[in-house]
Amino acid sequence: MSEEHRETGTGWPEPSEPTRPSGPAGEPDPRPDAPDPDELSPLAPPAETEAPAETDVPAETEAPAERQTGTSAGEPEATAGGSVARRLTSAGAMIAVLLALLGFTLVVQLKTTSTDPTLAATREEDLVRISSDLDSRERRLRQDIEALEESQRQLRSGEQGRQAALEEATRRADELGILAGTLPAVGPGLTVRFEGPDKAISSARILDAVQELRGAGAEAMQIAGSDGTTVRIIASTYFVDAAGGGLTVDGRRLSGPYTITVIGDPATMRTALNIPGGVVASVQDAGGNVTPEDREAVEVSQLHAPITLDHARPVS
């Protein structure tokens, strides 16, 4: 195989066209029966086919080059298509991760807001009581706001303002006297009786009851023991378990059962005592019993001795 055939990759050479034999150095054929040079050999192809014969080899040699060129040109297109596909795949993965995180956040938020450990175990009637308690507190606060605004308007007017100021000062003194326990009080309220063993009606549970009643709007309270000993409950009142049973309230010993007399809105205070896990439930769990009774008018008559101030004095 010649070097030309190896380079073009055409394989073995194709049979060449029949040519007229010639003598040395291109001289005419000396044979006597040799055809005339001007005559065409019957084996020679027509003249029209000579042109294609001359271009057969270049066409064959150019075809592989064209195929090679097409293959190399297609490679960048395939590479570009693969890059685009990879980019689309990465974007889809990122979107899927973001959606998963968003869904997880929503689920956690829903679980957090819908699984309140306090309200989840609350009965419907208890929720109604709590709602009623909140409504009562709101009404009471609105009434206080209206009263204060009316007092402010009266105090800003001349002679009427001075009279209103005197009346306001008197009212304030009465309120402070009731809160301080130096004045008796009467009004609607409750009597709450605590019965049971000392563990069930300990000082901690009695203090919890007092705090619940204060939070529900109690304005005046007193506690009495079974022997009739009564102590006015004010802001500074303390409760201690006495040795041998009973309670020590502001230095005075009381024996059970105990009765707390309180002035305030009966429905609101009763609801506060009966909330789930509240005073009534804790006393009952310890083997005791709490009995609240509504009263149209109760009297808190026990007085507390005025507190002597050692260090504080009014500013003039």
Rank of each mutant, 00 (worst) to 15 (best):
E138L: 14
L183W: 11
E159R: 14
T8W: 12
I178H: 02
P35I: 08
G196T: 02
D227H: 06
G278W: 05
P292A: 03
D208S: 11
M1K: 05
H304N: 10
R162L: 12
L102T: 15
L207T: 12
V315S: 11
T79Y: 10
R140K: 13
Q68Y: 08
V298F: 00
S157M: 14
A44P: 00
E293W: 00
E146G: 04
A53G: 09
R252G: 01
I178Y: 01
I95S: 11
V231H: 02
A59V: 11
E60I: 05
I178R: 14
E167G: 03
A51Q: 08
A34W: 03
A180K: 12
D294A: 12
V107Q: 11
I178A: 00
T261Y: 01
L309F: 13
G256T: 03
H5A: 10
V283H: 04
T71G: 10
T10Q: 14
H304W: 02
I233G: 04
A65K: 13
A121F: 02
M269K: 00
D285G: 01
A96K: 13
N274D: 15
A147S: 15
V290W: 05
A85Y: 05
A53R: 15
T105N: 12
A100N: 06
N274I: 02
T191G: 10
A53V: 08
P24F: 02
E62T: 08
T89W: 03
G158E: 15
M221G: 00
E77R: 08
R295V: 06
L98G: 13
E50C: 03
E7T: 10
V57G: 06
A164R: 06
T308E: 15
A78Y: 11
A44F: 03
R142T: 08
R193S: 10
S22K: 11
Q302A: 10
R214V: 00
P266N: 06
A200C: 02
Y258C: 03
V249H: 05
V315L: 13
M269Y: 05
A85V: 11
V262T: 14
L273H: 04
N289F: 10
A242I: 08
T191H: 09
R270Y: 00
F239T: 04
K199L: 05
E138R: 15
P188Y: 02
P257R: 02
